[in-house]
């Protein structure tokens, strides 16, 4: 394969961020714009005091030009994340979070920290949640076998991080596990 080695095993985090950027987010525009057709569909119209829904890539673009405020999604708040962190540390299973929460949270905290209430606290909470979940996926590693491993509510960034070696490890296990059924004809080594 001509693909560079690091790209063969999984998608890169920036690519996941790009995918997440297609999600819609609410903004308060500071400029007026008519309804405009983009490749991914028509967005707008933007009328300054009224909120509008646009994809994240557009929101970041406008925000960086100081032409809008981003309204953070409801889950990106201290209260919600605190509650999730409590769940995460008290229960054995992964708590439910939006599938691409890591990407969306990172973009918004990165581009528009002034639109979020208490961004530093949220950053700490997200970090704590991430570490708690990492510890869990590490435990999940011990349950690995050659057939399946189910970790419910794992999010896209986390799946992507563990994908390369989970896949490889399961591949190795497939080879060293003997099926109960009689083995294939013995000369398959040649």
């Amino acid at each position: 394969m001509a693909l560079p080695v690091p790209l063969r095993t999984s998608v890169t985090p920036p690519e996941l961020e790009l995918i997440a950027s297609e999600q819609l987010v609410e903004i308060i525009p500071l400029i007026a714009m008519e309804r405009t057709a983009f490749i991914s569909g028509p967005y707008g119209p933007l009328r300054p005091p009224t909120k509008a829904k646009v994809p994240i890539w557009m929101a970041t673009n406008l925000k960086l030009k100081k032409k809008c405020h981003i309204v953070p999604p409801s889950w990106l708040s201290v209260d919600f994340l605190q509650e999730r962190l409590a769940l995460e540390t008290s229960k054995a299973e992964f708590s439910q979070l939006p599938f691409r929460f890591a990407e969306v949270a990172k973009i918004i905290l990165d581009i528009a920290p002034d639109d979020v209430e208490n961004p530093d606290k949220i950053r700490y909470l997200l970090k704590d949640i991430r570490q708690a979940r990492q510890a869990k996926s590490r435990e999940g590693l011990q349950m690995i076998d050659h057939n399946e491993l189910s970790l419910a509510n794992l999010c896209s960034m986390e799946i992507n991080e563990i994908r390369p070696f989970f896949v490889r490890a399961m591949g190795v296990l497939t080879h060293i596990t003997r099926e109960a059924a009689p083995a294939e004809p013995q000369f398959d080594g040649f």
Binding site: T9, P13, E17, D110, I162, R163, P164, F165, V172
Partner: peptide, 26 residues
């Protein structure tokens, strides 16, 4: 060894992304 480097690279990539910023992009 192969698994080790897979895990290491992947963790490195993810860490890099968490520390990167898009602010310079317009």
């Amino acid at each position: 060894r192969e698994l080790f480097s897979l895990a290491q690279d992947s963790a490195k990539r993810t860490k890099q992304w968490y520390e990167s910023t898009d602010r310079g992009r317009r």
